[in-house]
Amino acid sequence: MITEYENKDLFNRLSTMPEKGKRGPKKKLTPEQEKMAVEFYTKGKYSFAGIGAVLGVSDETIRRAVLEHMNKLNK
């Protein structure tokens, strides 16, 4: 059974944690980095994660940039 003290302690620790989904602004790629990412990915030698690690952004940021580029080409 959890005591009132343990319950307050747990609540205090949880209240200092960042809220879910509030992790700060997304890092953006410069136009030059975007071009580089697209070139590296389309060569087929590099993964989204690998390119993201080199450029200091997430693999999702790279995936989004590549897909946006591909969508522009298809229009």
Rank of each mutant, 00 (worst) to 15 (best):
N71P: 07
L14I: 10
V38N: 00
P31W: 06
A37N: 02
E60N: 14
A49V: 07
K28W: 11
R63I: 04
E68Q: 13
T3Q: 01
K75E: 14
F48L: 10
E6S: 06
A65E: 05
T61L: 04
V66I: 00
G24R: 01
Y46T: 08
K26H: 04
E19N: 09
G52R: 02
L73S: 06
L73F: 06
K35Q: 07
K27T: 02
F48S: 10
R23P: 09
V66A: 02
K72Y: 10
G44L: 03
K45C: 10
H69Q: 08
A37Q: 00
E6R: 06
S15C: 05
E68H: 11
N71V: 10
R23C: 12
T3I: 03
R64V: 15
K43A: 09
A53W: 09
S15K: 07
D9E: 12
T42C: 11
K35T: 06
V66S: 02
V54S: 03
T30C: 01
K75V: 13
M36Y: 08
K43L: 10
K43V: 09
T3H: 01
L10H: 11
G52T: 03
S58P: 06
K45T: 11
E60P: 12
Y41H: 04
A49P: 04
M1D: 05
S15H: 05
A53S: 12
S58Q: 06
N74M: 14
E60Q: 15
G52C: 02
R23Y: 12
N71E: 12
F40M: 11
S47V: 02
K20P: 14
E39D: 15
V66N: 01
H69R: 09
P25T: 13
Y5S: 13
H69G: 07
Y46N: 09
A49H: 06
D59P: 09
M36F: 08
Y5D: 15
K20C: 14
A49C: 05
K75A: 14
K20V: 15
E19C: 08
F40L: 11
L29S: 02
R63W: 04
K26A: 04
L14H: 08
I62K: 02
H69P: 06
R63E: 04
N74E: 14
F11W: 15
K27L: 05
G21A: 04
K45V: 10
N7E: 08
N74G: 13
E19Y: 08
D9W: 10
E34K: 07
G50Y: 01
E6W: 05
K26R: 05
A53K: 12
N7R: 10
P18A: 04
S47L: 03
R13M: 01
L73N: 05
V54L: 04
Y46M: 10
N7I: 08
T3P: 04
G44N: 01
